[in-house]
């Protein structure tokens, strides 16, 4: 099992990336890990480049920023441009509802936003993405993400977000069956 994960969640303000980073961090703490979560955003509360970073480690995390990501999620064109040239060993997850198909072997496209809309909750695309990523990379266990969701949201919102999470976990299973990752 890998000791340290550096994760980038990049997109635009309002897509729930910082919240996703927090939930990832909370799930990792439930697994006894050290976590540092940071973010970078502009002065607009909606739109504009926004990025959350999460480092998960068994050891003390000294420098707080991601220096060489192990996992990347991109939800906008601008974010894709920023992270399209990473080493082929770094999986880049992206939203095929919002972005063109990417050719490289390390790109994993899923229709996060379309799936969220089908669920009836367009705002849960980030949770579907967390489900896919956690299931495919082993960053954290999906059940600990579910626990973190339960602690953060009221009953109805927690149910919606958990539903989205497990939908993502299910999608990941299909991807794996197809030999995707």
């Amino acid at each position: 099992m890998k000791q340290r994960f550096e994760v980038i969640l990049a997109g635009s303000g309002g897509q729930g990336l910082v919240l996703s980073g927090i939930l990832l961090g909370e799930a990792a703490i439930l697994e006894g890990k050290n976590v540092v979560q940071t973010q970078s955003y502009g002065i607009a509360s909606r739109g504009g480049f926004s990025q959350a970073e999460v480092i998960i480690d068994r050891e003390e995390i000294i420098f707080q920023q991601v220096q060489s990501p192990d996992v990347v999620l991109v939800l906008t064109r601008e974010a894709m441009e920023k992270y399209s040239l990473l080493a082929a060993s770094v999986p880049v997850f992206y939203d095929t509802t919002l972005l063109d198909r990417q050719a490289g072997e390390n790109f994993y496209g899923f229709p996060f936003t379309a799936m969220a809309s089908e669920l009836g909750h367009a705002g849960t695309a980030n949770m579907i993405a967390l489900g896919v990523i956690s299931a495919l990379t082993g960053l954290v266990k999906p059940e600990n993400l579910a626990k973190a969701i339960d602690r953060r949201f009221s009953a109805e919102a927690a149910r919606r977000n958990r539903e989205a999470l497990w939908l993502g976990v299910g999608m990941a299973g299909k991807e794996r069956d197809n030999g995707g990752i």
Binding site: G21, I22, G25, I29, N34, V35, V36, Q37, T38, Q39, I61, Q64
Partner: peptide
């Protein structure tokens, strides 16, 4: 801003 917005254990 870094330490104020950062989240940690």
């Amino acid at each position: 801003e870094i330490v104020a917005h950062m989240r940690e254990n």
